[in-house]
Amino acid sequence: MEKILVSDQYAPDSLSERAEFGDINVPVVETALQHVNLRQVATRTGSGHGVSFSELPVTGLLVLRARSERAALQSALQTTVNIKLPDTLQSEVSVSSGSHKSVYCIRWVAPDEWMLSCPAQDAFDIETRLRSSLGGNSVAIVNVTGGYSVLQLSGQHANDVLKKSTVYDVHPQNFSVGKVVNTTFAKAQVMLRCVSNDEYELIVRRSFADYVWHWIQVASKEYGLSVSRS
């Protein structure tokens, strides 16, 4: 059998300039869309600004799980990062410091599951502190920092792009600021948060990030897409 397979490329605008690295002891961090070189794309786009897109730098992400011992998790969070679990479903609690908004943010995922984001370099430390604070309580904490790409979509047509991409009702009347939902995004899945009016955060699985980026380019075409530096 003649086996035909294609040499595969990423989505358009793919291979970027290689990051230089010399000393292997200085680890090079790569986001999921590093290959796209969004910084370079950002300088090139100027066509319309209906939608603005950016990929955040690697963000610390911890999955928190608790069922009967939710209270223990709550108090451990309060002592370690001074943050509460969201009281209502599909919502978030954010803690900011100084000029940074949402240094810590806890998003509701399921009745026994939350996603905590934090600066990447703090993730391990927070996990350790939470664990020690929790002691023998039956709570799970999983560091998934590498597993996701955190994207931002904003602009007056950002909501239209979402309407093309997800089955969830993203009308502002239903999807208001501070709401977080897990839903579909084209043929991938997303944890979607309404950050402010016309500004959304998309947390997608790392391996799907290129697909999502490609999809957003196509869906934004009629509105004009600009890529912002992150």
Binding site: S7, Y10, L15, A186, K187, R206, D210, V218
Partner: peptide, 27 residues
């Protein structure tokens, strides 16, 4: 829009770029 390159997601590993640069054929 689910046609052509968007027919189905392609999932890439973190080392994909290296494989492309080193002439890998993909399965």
């Amino acid at each position: 829009s689910h046609t052509g390159a968007l027919f189905d997601p392609k999932r890439f590993t973190p080392m994909h770029r290296w494989h492309v640069e080193h002439g890998a054929l993909f399965e």
